[in-house]
């Protein structure tokens, strides 16, 4: 039995041991990377005071401005004004609640939305549209604007081109974390899923590596390994015995 476990431990170690090294390394790295920093907490300021809602335009005007059947409708503040956000069968429409005119989130508007949400004092370095999924934007609905600031963390804010909402922020700490995360979840192309056959197979092997290692420990130690702690105790006991006599 022990011989079999030793054989198992050694061969699993040879076949999938490298991934165990990578898992412990990436795990240790992620434990070190401060998740407040990684999540870019405190980079985006909470929305300023809500403006007063003056007589918003009627639903009929909204329906007309949307131009397509409305599935969901929201009335919300956006940068000091109220807008209707209508999810239509033809995509999201933003409509100014005061005059019923369409609101377009173009590069300039995205820049100004990002600047008013950004807590730092640094200027904008670049504004660019993101139309295809990237590592940074994989969890955001596209199209989005990527607004990068000239700070030392290379912080980028993502502004939805549909709703004008600031969806999130990514910085260098996150980019490093995301690379390590890729190693950890073994999804080398999308860095998204930890539920794929490769990781499940390797994890199954690694469970046996850990279990067999744990069991082998009981056979790997002799009393002499612990003599540095057991001997003094034995001596003390012997001394106590002779003392008692």
């Amino acid at each position: 039995m022990i011989l079999f476990l030793r054989w198992l431990h050694k061969w699993i170690g040879l076949i999938v041991g490298l991934q165990f090294v990578l898992w412990t390394f990436s795990g240790a790295a992620m434990a070190l990377l401060d998740h407040h920093k990684v999540a870019a907490e405190g980079v985006i300021r909470p929305p300023a005071d809500v403006p007063r809602l003056e007589q918003p335009v009627s639903l009929a005007r909204v329906a007309q401005a949307a131009g397509a059947p409305i599935l969901r409708l929201e009335l919300k503040p956006l940068q000091g004004r109220y807008v209707y956000e209508a999810a239509t069968t033809d995509g999201v429409r933003l409509i100014d609640a005061a005059d019923g005119r369409p609101v377009v989130i173009d590069a300039d508007r995205a820049r100004s939305l990002a600047v008013s949400a950004y807590r730092g004092a640094e200027p904008v370095r670049s504004v660019a549209p993101v139309t295809e999924s990237t590592f940074e934007t994989r969890t955001f609905a596209r199209p989005v604007w990527r607004v990068e600031f000239a700070d030392k963390d290379h912080t980028a804010l993502f502004v939805s081109a549909g709703t004008g909402q600031v969806l999130g922020a990514k910085n260098d700490a996150w980019r490093l974390w995301d690379f390590v995360w890729m190693i950890h979840i073994m999804d080398y192309t999308k860095r998204e899923s930890f539920n794929h056959p490769l990781i499940i197979t390797v994890a199954t092997g690694i469970v046996w590596l850990a279990l067999s290692g744990l069991i082998l420990l009981f056979r790997s130690f002799r009393r002499s390994d612990f003599s540095w702690v057991l001997d003094p105790i034995a001596r003390l006991r012997a001394a106590a015995k002779t003392g008692a006599r």
């Binding site: 469970v207 279990l211 130690f221």
Partner: peptide, 27 residues
């Protein structure tokens, strides 16, 4: 290897078993 494992082995079993569960049951 043996002395390090003595300290970490139980946690390593926890790590691998929990990791296997999280990867095997779809999110």
């Amino acid at each position: 290897h043996k002395w390090l494992a003595l300290i970490i082995a139980v946690q390593a079993v926890f790590w691998t078993l929990s990791g296997l569960y999280m990867s095997a049951v779809h999110i």
